[in-house]
Design a binder for these strands. Structure first.
Lengths: 101, 101
DNA sequence: TTCAATGTTCGAATATTTTCGAACTATCGA
DNA sequence: TCGATAGTTCGAAAATATTCGAACATTGAA
């Protein structure tokens, strides 16, 4: 398995995070992860093709929002909640508390 | 002057707001409006062409972030801060408090 | 070591955004 | 009413994003 790109949290730009969150599919993934803590990619795909989801997970990883770790053949995802809260205080809280689209 | 589209705040979707804020030009406009209160389009253009800025202001208006009113030939813009705070509590505060890109 | 399960990567099609010149509209003052 | 100022709209080009099938890679288990 190729090494995944988990950028340092201080290298993340705000507009990058906002863009990652502005896609409904990804916003949904983030909401689910906030609720469930950890989930595999397939548990979060909502019936969408694997390649589409792989793209979305990459965007989420590159924006610093999600950390992915392998657990057997599965990739387990979780929010980088503490780090995001340190870099962008209140942002995730506001997004997760907002009314669903 | 054609009537501007200022949607009801409750019709705004979160992803719409996040998308509007995810563009660096628009994020800059929002930051400046938060600091200065009210400003004309030309005061916020940063040297960019009028037609480009007109596009960005339209996105900001349609996302509920900005209200535009005519004042003579000029269009004065301001954040819909209270309304946004009611619909998306903490969101603007977090965005405006975040480190500049 | 072969298989099934889980994701990634690649490439191409489609869709959406961004950018900006040119033409147009509105407002105010001379 | 003519001009100057301030923005909008239109249209087209360029840049980005999204989608997804097909092929490939990795893991653990039979």
């Amino acid at each position: 398995m190729r090494k995944m790109n988990h950028p340092a949290i201080d290298d993340i730009a705000l507009s990058q995070v906002l863009h990652a969150l502005s896609d409904p599919v990804r916003l949904d993934v983030v909401r689910t992860l906030a609720r469930d803590g950890v989930a595999s990619c397939s548990a979060l795909d909502g019936g969408r093709p694997k390649s589409s989801m792989s793209h979305h997970f990459r965007v989420l990883r590159e924006s610093g929002l999600v950390r992915t770790q392998t657990d057997g053949p599965a990739h387990m995802n979780e929010l980088r909640r503490e780090e995001m809260d340190r870099r962008f205080p209140g942002l995730l809280g506001a997004v997760l508390g907002a009314p669903a689209d």
